[in-house]
C-alpha cells in the first residue's frame, strides 16, 4: 500500500520533469520509479502502523499548516527588513542563545519544528539534542516569540494525533 503510494509519487515527478508522453519515455519512467521504490521505499513514512484515516487527516491538515507558515514567514521577512533598514547603530539588534524544551516525540515532528523555527521571525535552530533545541535569536521580540509554544501545539495537532 505504502509502496504503491511512493511509486505513484515518484512517477508523477517523472512526468512533470520529462514532459514527453511517448511510449519510450513512459516505460523508462515506470522502470526507474519501480527500481527506486524497490531499493529505498523504507526512507519515507517511518511509522507504518497508522491507519488510513489518520493519513487522510494529515493530508488535509498539512496545507492549512503551510498557509499559516507562509504568513509567519512574511512577518519574519518584514521584521528582518525593518531591522536591516533602521538607520544608525542597529538599535534593536540584540543576539542571544536560547534553549527550549519540546514535547514532540517523533523525529519527523522535531525536524518540522526545527525547520519552522528557522523560517519564522529572527530565530535559527542550531542543534537538537534529545528533546532540547539550541536556538539563536536576533532581538528581544523574537526571543519572546520563540518561547511560547503555539507552533509546537499546531505541529502536534497535525502530525502526532494518533500517538
Amino acid at each position: 500500500m505504502y509502496r504503491l503510494c511512493i511509486f505513484l509519487f515518484l512517477f508523477g515527478i517523472w512526468i512533470v520533469f520529462s514532459g514527453q508522453f511517448d511510449s519510450f519515455h513512459i516505460t523508462l519512467g515506470v522502470l526507474s520509479s519501480a527500481f527506486i521504490t524497490a531499493i529505498s521505499s523504507s526512507f519515507l513514512f517511518e511509522n507504518r502502523s497508522k491507519g488510513i484515516g489518520v493519513r487522510l487527516h494529515e493530508l488535509i491538515r498539512v496545507p492549512i499548516y503551510m498557509v499559516w507558515m507562509l504568513y509567519q514567514i512574511l512577518l519574519s521577512n518584514i521584521h528582518i527588513l525593518r531591522l536591516a533598514l533602521t538607520p544608525g547603530d542597529l538599535p534593536e539588534v540584540e543576539p542571544s542563545l536560547v534553549r527550549i524544551k519540546t514535547n514532540l516525540k517523533t523525529d519527523f515532528g522535531k525536524w518540522i519544528l526545527a525547520n519552522s523555527i528557522t523560517l519564522t521571525p529572527g530565530t535559527i535552530t542550531i542543534d537538537i539534542e534529545g528533546d532540547e533545541l539550541l536556538i539563536h535569536s536576533i532581538s528581544k521580540i523574537t526571543t519572546a516569540g520563540v518561547e511560547d509554544d503555539t507552533m509546537e501545539r499546531k505541529i502536534a495537532r497535525v502530525f502526532e494525533k494518533g500517538e
Partner: peptide, 24 residues
C-alpha cells in the same frame, strides 16, 4: 532587505539571519 542585512549586521550569526530569511 537581505542584501542590506548581509552588509550591515555586525557578526556572523546575525548575517546568517539576513541571508537565510531574506532569500526564502
Amino acid at each position: 532587505g537581505g542584501a542590506v542585512g548581509i552588509l550591515r549586521f555586525p557578526d556572523f550569526y546575525t548575517r546568517m539571519h539576513a541571508a537565510g530569511k531574506g532569500d526564502t
